[in-house]
């Protein structure tokens, strides 16, 4: 098999193999890029309810009083007082922030965003282990795709033709941005 044919076969078949991973990293990359503007992994909602002010003199008394006034029958995972006027009650996926002097309660619910949460976990390599190996292989495959991609076509539309100019422009994007960050 001639080298160009091998190159094209590799580009085609590796390309097919990494479609799924490219979608995972592409979609999650878009989501995570804008993490400053929204939470890409979780949907968080807040509800405010009003109960009578809490009068307990210690944490345990305050917890019992809050549970009773909020009509909660379950036992919290934990309870904590970050400051003298606030009581936090933690349940699976839900936190109650009670302002003890006023009785104002903020209920925070946190739920993973369907699909996007899993994609983002993969992008951030949260699980490590095997996923580190798979994402390393994906990175190598991407490098291979870039290199083999340059040699698919010949002539005026190949690397010897306009290809070299497009490669140069593409390479100038990160170099130019790096230079911009140095002098801005």
């Amino acid at each position: 098999m001639k080298w160009r044919r091998l190159n094209n076969v590799l580009h085609r078949d590796v390309g097919y193999l990494i479609v799924g991973l490219t979608l995972v990293f592409g979609v999650s990359g878009l989501a995570l890029n804008h993490a400053a503007d929204w939470n890409p992994s979780y949907r968080q909602t807040q509800t405010v309810v009003q109960i009578a002010p809490l009068t307990g003199s210690n944490r345990d008394a305050l917890v019992a009083e809050a549970l009773q006034k909020l009509a909660i029958t379950g036992t919290p995972l934990n309870a904590f007082r970050p400051d003298p006027d606030t009581l936090q009650l933690f349940f699976e996926g839900r936190t109650y922030l009670v302002d003890t002097p006023t009785g104002t309660v903020i209920i925070e619910d946190t739920r993973p965003r369907p699909v996007l949460f899993e994609l983002n976990q993969m992008h951030l390599n949260a699980s490590k282990g095997l996923w580190t190996v798979l994402s390393d292989l994906y990175a190598v495959a991407l490098i291979m795709m870039a290199l083999t991609g340059m040699f698919i076509l010949r002539g005026s539309v190949g690397l010897a033709g306009r290809g070299k100019w497009l490669v140069a422009v593409g390479a100038l994007i990160p170099i130019g941005y790096w230079a911009y960050t140095l002098f801005r």
Binding site: S41, P76, N78, E92, T95, T110, P112, L124, N125, A126
Partner: peptide
């Protein structure tokens, strides 16, 4: 960043 990614589900646990 990225070394450990804690899920929000750990909130409230020890």
């Amino acid at each position: 960043d990225g070394v450990i990614v804690f899920p929000m589900s750990v909130k409230g646990k020890n």
